[in-house]
């Protein structure tokens, strides 16, 4: 074989090998690159805050806790959209929403009036009226007694207390 022919063959085989290498690189992306790509997509979406991903053999596994089912599926499609990801295992849990606090219950006027009258009994200069849960105080009171009176009125479950007392 001529020297030039040998060189040609060598160059040709190198071309084949390198193109194979390039091809294999393209078809088998690194897991760590995939993971970084998915993570950056997750981090750019505030709804997905709380989700984490790990990638092994091009299979992405999602874990963590998100607020809604919609966010869970959005995380899955986000991971799926990254080129090179073969499969997505979605192990994200959806947080059960905290129960809404019970509404404030305001005492009915009759027991409220009775409670208010008990509370102001020791303060003859204080007058009180009760209307639809609102306690209105008039008259006058000493500062030290104001706090005591307020402390007991506030336990009666009023809607609110309008303090129009003159504080002496």
């Amino acid at each position: 074989m001529k020297k030039s022919q040998l060189r040609m063959l060598f160059a040709f085989s190198w071309l084949i090998i390198s193109s194979f290498l390039i091809y294999s690189c393209k078809s088998k992306p690194k897991d760590s690159d995939l993971q970084t790509a998915i993570e950056s997509k997750i981090n750019s979406n505030p709804d997905l805050s709380g989700a984490s991903v790990s990638v092994k053999d091009q299979v992405a596994t999602l874990t963590g806790e998100l607020k809604t089912d919609a966010a869970k599926s959005s995380a899955e499609s986000t991971a799926q959209s990254v080129e090179g990801v073969k499969q997505v295992i979605n192990n994200i849990t959806v947080a059960t929403p905290a129960p809404a606090p019970a509404p404030v219950v305001v005492a009915a006027d009759d027991p409220l009036t009775k409670g208010v009258n008990d509370a102001i009994k020791d303060y003859p200069t204080v007058k009180a009226t009760v209307q639809d849960g609102v306690v209105t105080l008039t008259g006058e009171i000493k500062k030290a007694n104001l706090t005591k009176l307020m402390q007991s009125l506030h336990t009666l479950k009023p809607k609110k207390i309008e303090n129009k007392l003159t504080v002496k």
Partner: peptide
């Protein structure tokens, strides 16, 4: 001051 605003009911036992 003096609990004037009528915007809080503090039921602390």
């Amino acid at each position: 001051p003096d609990y004037r605003s009528a915007d809080l009911v503090m039921n602390i036992n």
